Computed example of a mutant assay.
Amino acid sequence: MTALPLDTDLIRAEFPAFREPSLDGWAFFENAGGSYTSQQVLGRLEHYYRANKVQPYGFYPASREAGAAMDLAHRRMAQALNVGMDWIHFGPSTSGNTYALGHAFAGWLKPGDAVVVTNQDHEANGGAWRRLADRGVVIREWQVDPVTGHLDPAALDKLLDSKVRAVCFPHASNIVGEINPVHEIVQKAKSYGAVTVVDGVSYAPHGLPDLLELGCDIYLFSAYKVYGPHQGVMAVRPSLASELPNQGH
């Protein structure tokens, strides 16, 4: 297969920020700040605020169109991640989604259950799990090599036993940039009956995660870091989602 050349002029033409006079001469490398959106995203947002900002799934045309647009968003995201539509949940941000998820796990776990976290995470995505200690959950830290920043899968073996209910770790570290072997880690956790929660915020902007291939139970990332609106995407295995207590309606 012959690789097609990357047409940078064509790509740049899809992003109005490149034509914004106030941004001329600037390049932004602040990944935490997200990314400028494409014209397609801006067009959909403009249409929604102009025509469909109503209660969706009603009987009148604008409401039906709003519901159809929501369904399309779930369907397209599910296709991108290679899962069913019932996996996909949108929220305000990955930090917000993780916070709500942590609250749900607090009602699902029992005192004495253990959760594995790492010190390779962003605090905003690891702190929600560490706070479960206030509910009697035992927190076990999978530590990186202090010299290389490497998260050694062999070190995880010493932390796993029948008390571990969840293993929470990053797909890629936003500190050292290491891409972790998600499938290998998932298999280790599964052998002890633990669920896996993968923070994909720093990986999703650089690769398209295939969740069925990775095998994880929960995967989170931020749409605004992949040229989308300021929302977080949380994919949850439906069988697990049905066990977790509701956090809203």
Rank of each mutant, 00 (worst) to 15 (best):
L6Y: 11
T8R: 11
D9G: 01
L10S: 11
I11F: 07
R12E: 11
E14C: 13
R19T: 14
D24L: 12
G25V: 05
G34L: 06
S38Y: 02
L42H: 07
G43V: 05
H47N: 12
Y49W: 15
A51D: 15
K53Y: 13
V54W: 05
Y57C: 00
F59T: 13
P61R: 05
S63M: 03
G67Q: 00
A68M: 04
A69K: 03
D71T: 06
D71I: 00
R76S: 09
M77I: 11
A78D: 01
A78L: 02
Q79W: 05
L81K: 01
V83A: 03
I88A: 02
I88K: 02
H89M: 02
F90Y: 12
G91I: 00
S93G: 09
S93M: 03
G96N: 08
G96W: 02
G96H: 03
N97E: 12
T98L: 15
L101K: 05
L101C: 04
H103L: 13
H103W: 11
F105C: 04
W108V: 04
W108H: 15
V115T: 06
V117F: 09
T118L: 07
Q120W: 06
N125I: 10
G126W: 08
W129L: 09
R130M: 13
L132W: 09
L132V: 07
A133I: 10
R135L: 12
G136K: 09
V138P: 00
I139P: 05
R140Y: 05
E141I: 13
E141W: 04
E141L: 11
P146W: 08
V147D: 13
G149R: 08
G149V: 03
H150N: 08
L151R: 07
A154G: 00
A155T: 07
L159H: 03
D161R: 03
R165L: 05
A166F: 13
A166W: 05
I175Y: 13
I175H: 14
P181D: 11
V182L: 03
Q187T: 07
Q187R: 13
K188C: 01
S191F: 00
A194L: 04
V197F: 10
V198N: 02
S202G: 01
P205M: 07
L208C: 08
D210A: 04
L212R: 14
L212Q: 15
L212E: 15
I218V: 15
L220M: 14
Y227F: 15
Q231T: 09
A235N: 05
A241L: 15
S242R: 13
L244M: 10
L244V: 06
L244I: 07
G248N: 07
